[in-house]
Design a protein around this nucleic acid. Structure first.
Length: 512
RNA sequence: UCCUCAGUAGCUCAGUUGGUUAGAGCAUCUGACUGUUAAUCAGAGGGUCCCUGGUUCAAGUCCAGGCUGGGGAGCCA
């Protein structure tokens, strides 16, 4: 292995070195060669850069080595920084010398597309690819922005324990572990501890991993995910909704400011994010149900009609694609067609087939969603499809508040002006992403809480400490929980939350 | 747990009504090309058709059971 040097720069600093000789270190993301010339795409974690190695410049030996570099080989380059508008980042390196840390073995992730399962098995390497790099950079911005927002607004970060003695809210299935021969569960929420800490600090937020053992296999579930849970003393639901709205706006704005290139890599339509500057509609559960069932239109849009329209468009698109595939397959067979054109058509056909698979899935799902929306029973919780149906009617995130008491956690405060409903709020992200935040105002009256614990058949002794919070200076207070991967998923428009976390943990996925 | 889709080369996939020796692109190797952007072009090597059993003269293809994975429902952030 070649010795280290302190004297090197990173690709993101390149603009300061135009016309100068620099040393760069990184990995070969791609290589193309022609007679006497090799193009290397170098990535060093901070960016991507095309490096040009000319035989006449670096000599025959180095040139032969450059030609033989395998993908993901680790190298050090010295060269001249030149401006080149055609390149990503606007620069190019004219290589003067090449040193090799390691010529990599054959890299398993190829330049063409791969299936999800293969990529997940190679997650440790997949993270190097441009798209995953962009997502992780945005994740970093989101995390930093979260801290920035709360720190600027007088919150103290204080974390809840991960081992807990009992199943807190009694609803979800938890992971059981052995804690010195005593059963312990991995935390599904830091909420109750958050309340205790808010009574000490006024405003706090927790930021940590959360665990759910539900056997969910959908694009919005992980067994282990990161959650941010602010809790605020002397805040009611309306004040909390103000905080949530300001908070989400801040985080998304930060990504728009700091991750232009990354969003471009992801081909994200940023106008869909820029709408966060608008006011988020606040809708009561009562009105939301009417919208889902199609009894109430929103800005001239009706949920059921929108879905039926979607179904027709989906079916039309499937037919159109089927026709196009046929035409292209026929075209390939036409004699005299050039090899390049054949390859182009074959690739196009492959892409179209992938699209058809997704469309066919939608074709199967939409009728179920229509039925589910039409038959929605007032008083039930929203299912995934109900959220999709509802959020499709809006451009911005929406806040649904005042939920039926029966479907929410025992500590939620009943609304004074709406008996039977609690002051809870769910924030639903647009473009079908659904719930990213859940929160609300907490019950302050000890007797109501005791009754609720009995009613939910929860073990009273486990909540004694929690009830103390109502014995010693109970105050109105509220909080919420934000799913980190869920908001990243929406911001990046990812097909699955598994891409929003470096090493996802889900059913059947413990490695890598 | 239920519904649904899939499993063929290292990867992504094609394989017609069951019919000769199972194909393509990428990747790998050899060669060509001084400006490529998933470069291109010529050639070569590469197979437990998920498993078990059944039907048949004949199974990648049909039938039954199982395994693994994707998506959805439930539950949730």
């Amino acid at each position: 292995m070649i010795p280290v040097t302190k004297d090197f720069i990173r690709i993101q600093e390149l603009s300061q070195y135009e016309g100068k000789e620099v040393t760069l270190q990184g990995w070969v993301q791609n290589r193309r060669d022609s007679k006497g010339i090799v193009f290397l795409i170098l990535r060093d974690g901070s960016g991507f850069l095309q490096c040009v190695a000319l035989q006449e410049k670096i000599g025959d030996t180095a040139f032969e080595e450059a030609k033989r570099l395998s993908l993901e080989s680790s190298i050090r380059l010295k060269g001249l920084v030149k401006k080149d508008e055609k390149q990503i980042g606007g620069f190019e390196l004219e290589v003067n010398s090449l040193e090799i840390f390691e010529n990599a073995e054959e890299y398993p992730i190829g330049k063409k597309e791969h299936g999800v399962d293969f990529l997940m098995d190679h997650r440790h390497l997949w993270l190097r690819s441009k798209r995953q790099w962009a997502i992780m950079r945005i994740r970093n911005t989101v995390i930093f922005a979260i801290h920035e927002f709360f720190q600027q607004n007088g919150f103290v970060e204080m974390d809840a324990p991960i081992f807990t003695g009992n199943a807190c809210e009694g609803t979800s299935t938890l992971f059981e572990t052995d804690f010195f021969e005593e059963p312990a569960y991995l935390s599904q929420s830091g909420q109750l501890y958050g309340e205790a800490m808010a009574m000490a600090m006024g405003k706090i937020y927790t930021f940590g991993p959360t665990f759910r053992a539900e056997k969910s296999k959908t694009r919005r579930h992980l067994s282990e995910f990161w959650m941010i849970e602010p809790e605020m003393a002397f805040y009611d639901l309306d004040m909390t909704m103000d905080v949530i709205e300001e908070f989400i706006r801040f985080v998304v704005q930060r990504v728009l400011d700091k991750n232009k290139f990354e969003l471009e890599v992801l081909e994200r339509d940023v106008t869909k994010l820029e709408v966060v500057t608008q006011k988020f509609p606040r809708i009561s559960y009562h009105d939301a149900v009417a919208m889902i069932k199609g009894e109430k239109d929103v800005n001239g849009k009706n949920s059921i009609l929108t879905l039926q329209d979607d179904l027709i468009q989906t079916q039309e698109r499937i037919l159109a694609i089927g026709k196009e595939i046929e035409e292209r397959e026929l075209a390939i067979k036409t004699p005299g067609m050039k090899k390049g054109q054949i390859t182009f058509n074959e690739e196009k056909i492959r892409q179209l087939k992938v699209e058809v698979k997704d469309l066919e899935e939608a074709e199967r799902n939409i009728p179920q969603w229509i039925a589910s929306a039409q038959n929605f029973v007032y008083g039930n919780d929203f299912g995934g499809s109900d959220e999709t149906v509802l959020t499709r009617l809006f451009e911005t995130p929406i806040m649904v508040y005042n939920w039926p008491k029966a479907i929410k956690a025992f500590y939620m405060k009943e609304a004074d002006d709406a008996p039977g409903f609690v002051r809870g709020v769910d924030v639903l992200a647009p473009e079908g992403y659904g719930e990213i935040v859940g929160g609300g105002q907490r019950e302050t009256d000890i007797q109501i809480l005791i009754d609720a614990i009995h009613h939910h058949e929860l073990p009273m002794e486990a909540f004694e400490w929690y009830l103390d919070l109502r014995r010693f200076g109970s105050v109105p207070h509220s909080g919420f929980g934000l799913g980190l991967e869920r908001i990243i998923c929406w911001v990046c428009k990812l097909p699955h939350v598994r891409e929003a976390i470096p090493f996802p943990r889900m059913m059947g996925r413990l490695l890598p």
